[in-house]
Write a protein that binds this DNA or RNA. Structure first.
Lengths: 344, 344
DNA sequence: GAAATTAGGACAAACGATTGAGCAATAAGG
DNA sequence: CCTTATTGCTCAATCGTTTGTCCTAATTTC
């Protein structure tokens, strides 16, 4: 019952108390007792002492020796964005199940902070990383791949990169959205896009364009606005669209935050959804059902993105068969609510 | 330019290359050069080699020796809840600025997982912890305080506990809400509460009750429903309230998720806010402005909760003056929108 | 009954830093 | 020229594990 007060319980004090070597204690504690022919009696003694003295393995020491930390690094551009928070959540839950801890870094959409995070995670010797890149620059991610530490890229990726990645089917998601607009009779469809030159944005944009082309609807260049994934951008983008020389009848919001900003602009202009303007949001949110008019959206399977990423990473860590880098595309889903008007 | 391929760059290889001892290298790398009278020449040589060889300190080794990991553990009940995500975000940002990393654990509102997280964080020798407890049981948190590692408790705390904590002013928040209802003429005010026996809930409940008493309005016991902070609970609670023998005219939702659930129930019953029923939500969310009727809410200053917590913790870590444990209460703010009807 | 196994465990070298104490060479002081 | 300081480092222990190798008794085998 003597709780360790001054003295931290280490393998060494257990060894002394038990009258055996530290080797023996180590082997018992790591469950290798039988493998190394430690007698039942010794094993029980050691276990009892460990419990009594409240022993807890010092993971630092173990990691240093084993060159494995059982930790993974996760970098997201903004953990307060529910999209990334959901991904982070499933990553954490699955990691823990596998005996890993996750070190979280918020890059704040800033390439410099992203780089810094990468460095910290390397210094901490994480066994692997799951990165939702800022996406503006390839450089950081290229660099990290030089350190031959397993990395999974999620959401925003770089086609040129030889890393496994897990992404939503942004292209077909956009197509679903635009087709839905077109089915409902819309021809003047705008797109408030996110950050240029990120895969996520370019694929959505391509979907937007291709869906127009396949339906023989000309694209009005002035209907494409926006420059990042934030709320402010959505607000400004919508303001511009609604006050342009030609007003669109429908808007595709390039992210959940963009759509939120657009909602503010629409409301400020005293317009009603869907009567005056139709809207589809990329990335579904739990509250869409309760907005002034429930918002039709393209749902991304966030938990699956997270689960697949961590599964991929763990597999690589198990030294598993690494059959080349994979690109895994997770389908999106059109959730029809009431924000798209049937016209004509 | 010889990038380290097979061989990781350690202090030792730099020492060999430079023809000095590891001690010297260590001292240069940690910026203690002048303190230990390392010559400018040697210092520059070491620095140059470190750069060339792409040296990065192994934090594990340092931590083992220094008995300091420069990491802090953070436990939240659900990182995908924007409330906790916002807190986590400011904790991460401020930690990083101070040179700390954060290990994130999601307890999934489960006491057992919380306990497990606590253990993992101890094994990883975090320098301190910031915990948003599940709140059902005191035991876990009492246990952790035995290990004399600095801990800050956020949001749900235990009055009996001798730990610093940072909380919203839940009591006055509830009072603000109820007073607002009363000002608007409401007398039949319901409360969908969260998890019983958590400080957060009990204080809000007390505010609810006291505000009634001070205004000489009898409390109808059947107007108090609910049992946890989740969406489902809000839905069920509202269903019960709306179909009870006596229907309230106003509802205070005990959390953002509860309020979301309540919205669904209200909508299912084909009722309109605020004409048929008034609502105030505890914890403001960015989308409240855009709900079918913009929701009046009690805003919690989430970022401040996070910032204050980490500041408190860092202060304790600096070995700073620890003038007893503190309880810091962060005021809430009533955000008036359009979900409360003026009656009579 | 000698040789070969087996059981049960101990030794000591890592892992990569940090750090108190010490030591040789040079400079300064008288 | 001898003593004392100062400069500029180095030595070696330490942090708490893990792990390949080795060792001694006891037990089997033939």
């Amino acid at each position: 019952m003597s709780l360790p007060k001054n003295q931290k319980t280490t393998i060494k004090v257990i060894a002394e108390r038990a009258g055996v070597s530290v080797t023996t204690v180590s082997r018992v504690m790591s469950g290798q007792g039988s493998k190394y022919r430690i007698s039942k009696k010794t094993e029980e003694l050691v276990n009892r002492l460990a419990k009594e003295l409240n022993y807890e393995t010092n993971i630092l020491a173990r990691s240093l020796r084993m060159k494995q930390t059982f930790s993974i690094g996760m970098i997201v551009p903004d953990i307060s964005n529910p999209f990334f928070a959901s991904i982070a959540r499933s990553v954490e839950i699955e990691s823990r199940k596998a005996g890993y801890s996750v070190i979280l870094c918020d890059s704040q959409e800033d390439t410099t902070l992203e780089k810094e995070s990468l460095k910290v995670l390397r210094m901490r010797k994480v066994d692997g990383m799951i990165i939702c890149p800022v996406g503006k620059e390839l450089k950081n991610i290229i660099d990290v791949s030089k350190f031959n530490i397993p990395v999974i890229v999620v959401d925003r990726y770089f086609p040129a990169l030889n890393l496994s990645c897990v992404v939503s089917d942004n292209y077909n998601g956009a197509i679903q959205a635009i087709n839905h607009f077109i089915d409902k009779g819309h021809r003047k469809i705008a797109f408030i896009q996110g950050l240029r030159n990120t895969s996520v944005n370019e694929e959505r944009l391509k979907g937007y364009l291709d869906a127009h082309e396949k339906n023989n609807i000309p694209v009005n260049e002035s209907f494409i606005v926006g420059e990042d994934f934030g709320k402010q951008n959505g607000y400004i983008g919508a303001k511009i669209l609604l006050n342009g020389s030609e007003r669109p009848t429908a808007i595709l919001g390039g992210s959940n935050l963009i759509s939120l900003g657009a909602l503010r602009a629409i409301s400020e202009e005293h317009l009603n959804i869907p009567d005056d303007i139709s809207l589809i949001a990329f990335d579904d949110q739990p509250y869409y059902d309760f907005l002034s008019s429930p918002i039709t959206s393209i749902r991304q399977k966030k938990e699956e993105l997270g689960k697949i990423s961590i599964a991929l990473l763990l597999n690589e860590l198990k030294g598993g068969n690494v059959p080349g880098k994979k690109k895994i595309i997770v389908p999106t889903e059109l959730i029809v609510r009431k924000s798209v008007k049937q016209i004509n």
